[in-house]
C-alpha cells in the first residue's frame, strides 16, 4: 500500500488513478508495467488511445466519479470514444430529459402529498350483488338415441329445420338491433380537480387516449378525448392535436380557433402555424395561409408539410395576382 501511495504522489496523474482502478490494484508487477505504459500526459494518452474497449473502460471510470471528477478528461474521453467506437453503449444518451421529468413530477407529487385526502368518494353507488346467470348451453335438448324408433317416428325433419331457421333469424335480428341502439352518453365531467397535479394527470391521460384513437382513425372519439383533455387543462399539445383532428373532420373554423389559442400560449409554434395555414387554405383565405406557411418554413426549413403547403398556396395567390393584373393591362 505504501508503494502505491508513493507512486501516486510521484506521478500525480489522473490517468494513473484511472488505470489503478481499472486493474483492481491486485498485481504489483502488472501495476508497475501499466504505470510505465501510461507515463504520458493524461489528455495526451486519451487522445492517442487506439483501443476502443480500453477507451470505454476509461470513460466509464471517469463517469463513475470514483476516482474524482475531471470534466476536461471526461470531455476528451467522450470525444475520443466517439471517434473510436461511435456505437459504444456508454455513448447512448438513454433518456436525456429524465432528470427534468423527475423534478417536474416530484413537484406534482409534493402537491398531492400536502393535499392528501383519505376519503374514497364516488358518484356511483356500491354495486348490488347479483347471482351469476347460468351459461347458455347450446344443445340442451336431449338427443334421440339411434335405436329409439318410436321417437324417430314422431320426428319431422321439416319442422325441425324450420325451427332452426327461425332461431337463427332471431339471433341475427338481435345482433342488428343491438347495432341500432344508440350508445349511452358518457356522464363524466372533467373540470373539477382540486389540485393542479390531478388536472395535469387527467389531461395527459386523455390526450394519450386521444392520440391512440387518432392513430386508429377514429377521429370523432379522438375529438372527444382531446376536448376532455383541454377542459381539464389546456396546453399547447392537446390544442394542437385537437386542431389537426378538426382538420381531419373538415371543421376548419374550429381548427383555426384552436391554432390561435396555441399561438396565444406559444407565439412561434411551428405546428400551429402549419395547421393554421392548412385551415386557411381550405377556407380559401390564401394570402393569410401563405403568411402562416412561410413563417413555418422560416422557423423550420426542413418542415416538408409546411413547404408543400407554401408552394400550393403560393400558386393560388399567383393565380389571383395574374388575374387582377390582366384586368389592368386590358386598358391599353
Amino acid at each position: 500500500m505504501m508503494g502505491m501511495a508513493e507512486n501516486c504522489k510521484k506521478l500525480n496523474s489522473d490517468v494513473y488513478k484511472i488505470v489503478a482502478h481499472m486493474f483492481g490494484r491486485k498485481d504489483q508487477l502488472f501495476y508497475r508495467n501499466t504505470i510505465s505504459r501510461y507515463r504520458i500526459s493524461e489528455i495526451d494518452y486519451i487522445q492517442h488511445c487506439k483501443d476502443g474497449k480500453e477507451m470505454e473502460k476509461i470513460y466509464h471510470v471517469l463517469l463513475s466519479g470514483e476516482e474524482g471528477v475531471y470534466p476536461h478528461l471526461i470531455e476528451a474521453a467522450e470525444e475520443r470514444l466517439r471517434q473510436l467506437k461511435p456505437k459504444s453503449k456508454w455513448l447512448r444518451k438513454t433518456c436525456p430529459d429524465l432528470e427534468g421529468w423527475v423534478t417536474n413530477i416530484s413537484r406534482h407529487n409534493k402537491e398531492l402529498e400536502t393535499r392528501k385526502n383519505d376519503e374514497t368518494r364516488s358518484d356511483t353507488a356500491v354495486r348490488i350483488p347479483k347471482k351469476l346467470e347460468d351459461v347458455p348451453v347450446r344443445n340442451r335438448e336431449k338427443r334421440i338415441s339411434s335405436i329409439n324408433y318410436s321417437a324417430w317416428d314422431k320426428y319431422d325433419p321439416d319442422t325441425e329445420i324450420l325451427k332452426m331457421e327461425l332461431a337463427e333469424e332471431k339471433e341475427k335480428m338481435g345482433v342488428i338491433e343491438k347495432q341500432k341502439r344508440p350508445k349511452p352518453k358518457k356522464s363524466v365531467s372533467f373540470n373539477k380537480y382540486p389540485t393542479e397535479a390531478e388536472a395535469v394527470y387527467a389531461s395527459n391521460r386523455e390526450k394519450e387516449k386521444g392520440n391512440e384513437f387518432f392513430k386508429a382513425g377514429d377521429y370523432d372519439e379522438a375529438l372527444q378525448c382531446y376536448t376532455n383533455s383541454i377542459s381539464s387543462k389546456p396546453c399547447v399539445n392537446n390544442l394542437n392535436n385537437r386542431a389537426v383532428t378538426y382538420l381531419k373532420l373538415k371543421q376548419y373554423e374550429l381548427a383555426l380557433e384552436d391554432c390561435d389559442r396555441v399561438l396565444t400560449i406559444e407565439r412561434d409554434n411551428v405546428k400551429a402555424y402549419t395547421r393554421k395555414g392548412e385551415a386557411l387554405e381550405k377556407l380559401e383565405r390564401y394570402q393569410e395561409a401563405l403568411d402562416c406557411a412561410e413563417f413555418a418554413v422560416q422557423k423550420d426549413p426542413n418542415n416538408g408539410v409546411a413547404q408543400e403547403l407554401a408552394e400550393r398556396v403560393r400558386k393560388r395567390c399567383e393565380n389571383k395576382l395574374t388575374n387582377t393584373r390582366m384586368k389592368i393591362i386590358e386598358i391599353e
Binding site: S122, A125, V126, R127, P129, L132, K186, V188, A202
Partner: peptide
C-alpha cells in the same frame, strides 16, 4: 373517471371476486 372504484382478485381457490372498499366484508360480485 367513471363508475365506482372497484378491485378484482383472482385466487388459487378458483374464485374471482370484485370488491368495493366502501362495503365491508362481502364482495360486490363473485
Amino acid at each position: 373517471g367513471c363508475g365506482a372504484p372497484e378491485i378484482v382478485t383472482g385466487s388459487r381457490d378458483g374464485s374471482v371476486m370484485v370488491w368495493d372498499i366502501r362495503q365491508k366484508d362481502t364482495p360486490v360480485a363473485k
